[in-house]
């Protein structure tokens, strides 16, 4: 197993006496993108700010690649998309990205090429000469993501990367993360659970400043039982639940939301439960929208008994 790149031990932080993070401890190893979820005010941005070195924790220790956050030896190895950070309106996007690349150690010509590359990656090459205040919210967000990609750092921390983006740009950002994930480890804080479910293999849950002791694995089945999440077109819920309950191997069927059903079953008794369910739906002329193996991320994180 590889060495952790982020090690947080008993990290606490308070704002004017109010505790925002309480004894948060976790390790992150390099590899697949890792998500950080939690409700508003859970302390996600505080945690990311501490990891970036923008904020000093009130107590506890943080180590990134063996150094304290903010250590100059981390320059070029870690980058971030901070929340609510905007570029200087006096200079063009190109000028500012070149400066950031130069500060990261690139020579004059290399810095220009790198700035062009990252701007191209977020599909904003035409905005090279634009001033930040002429960009829309979504474009400004993409430029901020572009700066995080400069120099392909080993660790990239993203705070709400898709907040305020339209579906096309969300998809674009997702593909950038997937592509860059070959070279960098991403730690992504987001409210967008379906999006996190698509990108991240592991998710950490932070609630009221407390980190959940479990790292939730998105793909993993839970213990000896399996789950299938079924989204239906408008249908009679009682009849459908009754029909599903009668299938061999089904333990229980629940209806967490309108037209959404969660089937818990025993995989050793019904290894092809998905096929069984589809056959049952076809026989009864019910139309489904989506069938997913496992629980949705939302269900896993917030509604597990």
């Amino acid at each position: 197993m590889s060495e952790p790149i982020i090690q947080c031990q008993s990290v606490s932080h308070s704002y004017s006496g109010k505790l925002a993070l309480k004894q948060v401890s976790f390790d992150i190893t390099p590899g697949e993108p890792i998500g950080l979820v939690g409700p508003n005010g859970a302390g996600k941005t505080t945690l990311l700010s501490i990891l970036c070195g923008f904020l000093k924790p009130s107590s506890g220790s943080v180590s990134i690649f063996g150094y304290k956050p903010g250590d100059s030896r981390l320059c070029g190895r870690i980058s971030a998309l901070p929340q609510d950070a905007w570029f200087d309106p006096a200079f063009t996007i190109g000028e500012q990205l070149v400066l950031l690349a130069r500060l990261q150690g690139f020579g004059t010509d290399q810095a220009k090429q790198e700035a062009e590359r990252v701007l191209d990656a977020v599909a904003l090459k035409d905005s090279w000469s634009a001033k930040p205040d002429t960009l829309s919210h979504g474009m400004a967000k993409r430029v901020a993501i572009a700066q995080a990609l400069i120099g392909s750092p080993e660790l990239i921390l993203l705070d709400e990367p898709t907040a305020g983006l339209d579906p096309v740009n969300t998809r674009n950002i997702r593909s950038i993360i997937m592509e860059q994930a070959k070279y960098s480890t991403f730690f992504i804080s987001s409210h967008d659970l379906p999006e996190l479910g698509r990108v991240c293999q592991k998710v950490l849950l932070l609630e009221n400043g407390v980190m959940s002791p479990m790292q939730h694995n998105v793909a993993e089945t839970e213990g000896s039982t399996g789950f299938i999440t079924l989204q239906m077109e408008a249908c009679a819920a009682d009849e459908l639940m009754k029909a599903l309950q009668e299938l061999k191997g089904v333990i229980q069927v629940s209806n967490p939301q309108k037209n959404e059903f969660l089937v818990e079953y025993l995989p050793e008794k019904a290894p092809q439960m998905d096929i069984e369910i589809l056959t049952c739906l076809a026989k009864c002329h019910w139309h489904y929208r989506q069938l997913t193996r496992g629980k949705s991320l939302e269900e896993k994180l917030f509604f597990t008994d």
Binding site: G53, S72, G76, S79, A80, P82, A85, D88, L100, L103
Partner: peptide
């Protein structure tokens, strides 16, 4: 504005 954060990721606070 938060611009300092972009810089602080690349240079020390002393710099």
């Amino acid at each position: 504005r938060g611009t300092l954060r972009f810089l602080a990721l690349r240079v020390s606070r002393d710099a």
